[in-house]
């Protein structure tokens, strides 16, 4: 079974994946374009997403080795480096982090991830809108049209406008994921 989905929030993605697993599936592959492959299974699996960037080959082997010793199986994937997908059979030890400090630094890494993506989109937005601003999103002649012709043209153009606006929309999306990770990070740090 293949499913398509796009996520801009790691925790939402993890929830969705585990939702699929609870229906009696296990994940076999994740392609870079949001295509998740599953197969039926009688066993119960659980998935966890980790974020680790800049692992050298040696570091990655050590990282993968330790996780595998704990029964985690690495699933390649992610449309950008850094996101790591782990799956294992449910056995009561199903978390990647067992103390407050390490869970906190996990959220700290997620903050860095959202910040990086947010900045990237901000940069794209700047490049895209710096000459025209938002005023010329729609075709100029559109505003002179009347009646049903106007509405048809308006509806026709709106998807393209949204596409043009997507970097700006993503800046907002990533800001919000940054803020969510930041809230969890400070909650774990305070106590």
């Amino acid at each position: 079974m293949k499913k398509f989905n796009l996520f801009f929030n790691i925790e939402k993605e993890e929830q969705w994946l585990n939702g699929q697993l609870q229906k009696g599936y296990r994940c076999t592959n994740i392609s870079g374009w949001g295509i998740y492959s599953f197969e039926k299974t009688d066993k119960r699996y659980v998935m966890r997403l980790d974020y680790q960037e800049h692992l050298s080959k040696n570091q990655f082997e050590e990282y993968k080795g330790i996780y595998e010793d704990f029964g985690w199986h690495y699933i390649k994937g992610g449309w950008l480096g850094g996101l790591r997908y782990w799956q294992k059979e449910e056995d009561g030890q199903d978390e990647l982090f067992s103390d407050r400090q390490s869970k906190g630094s996990y959220y700290n890494r997620l903050m860095g991830y959202s910040l990086m993506l947010g900045m990237l989109c901000l940069f794209f937005s700047f490049m895209l809108y710096k000459d025209t601003g938002f005023s010329e999103l729609y075709f100029k002649g559109l505003w002179d049209m009347e009646g049903s012709l106007f509405w048809k043209a308006f509806l026709f153009e709106t998807p393209f406008v949204l596409l043009k606006l997507s970097p700006a929309i993503l800046v907002v999306v990533f800001s919000s994921t940054y803020y969510k990770a930041y809230r969890k990070y400070t909650m774990l740090k305070e106590k």
Binding site: E62, I66, F70, Q93, L96, S98, D99, S102, Y106
Partner: peptide, 14 residues
């Protein structure tokens, strides 16, 4: 009473 999880152990060792 202390059972370390994989990510916690890896991070601590690093």
């Amino acid at each position: 009473s202390v059972i370390l999880a994989a990510g916690t152990l890896y991070g601590a060792i690093e």
